[in-house]
Amino acid sequence: MVLSVDKVEFSYGKANILKDINFKVKKGDFVSILGVNGSGKSTLMKCINRILKFKEGMIFVEERDVREMKEIEIARKMGYVPQRSETGFITVFDAVLLGRKPYIKWDVSSKDIELTEEILKVMNLDEYALRYINELSGGELQKVVIARALVQQPRILLLDEPTSDLDLKNQLEVMKLIKEVSCAQNIASIVVMHDINLALRYSDKFIVLKDGQVFTSGGREVITPELIKEAYGVDVHIKNFEGVPLVIPKSQ
């Protein structure tokens, strides 16, 4: 197990956001976290890499308790892409190179430069290398941010709504890329998704949150019209189309 989450609870003051969260993730898994807004998806992501300090429960990364790991050790195990990324007056190369931060002491090494160059090439970003990131389109920026998380050489990739600002082509491209990378490098990807169809197309595991609890989890088979009704409050049909289940909301 690369990640195991055991009875994790989290609250902001008195508001209980996460209750009794349990699940396990294997190497190479592509896990989608589903649920309505406010169900605790983003909070769960931040608890996993200790950006938020959970009080109860335990999280193990490759058998190590995250509470006993330094920030920099966690950053070497987990790459995190938050929902919103700020841009700035830095080049694409520098923005991706920043992913080597957990390994940098005084300055970057030639290995850091090589890895950055390699990932830029893999993601077809090399021609943008010296463009400033505030001049990029949403899709390009999202790829840069994912490239940064990958150059961290993590065991686990945590992506919070990576496709929400993207057009159809970029959505498919980014998801395909994440899937390929997780397979090729044996990285576990945990992705918060709003688009259930996109999740069904690329993910092999699903964790559905409701009111801060794991409502259900498992493979594609757990995504049923009943589940969607319970978790999202929406009546849907689920049709099989070219081997992929397709969730279609019923007309009112």
Binding site: E71, I74, A75, G79, Y80, V81, I90, V145, A149
Partner: peptide
């Protein structure tokens, strides 16, 4: 300050990203 130049670079692209990169 020079030793922490990369920490400041991380802060430049957002608080949460910086934390994700192991910056306290």
């Amino acid at each position: 300050f020079m030793y922490h130049a990369w920490d400041y670079n991380s802060l430049e692209i957002g608080e949460e990203t910086a934390k994700g990169l192991g910056v306290n």
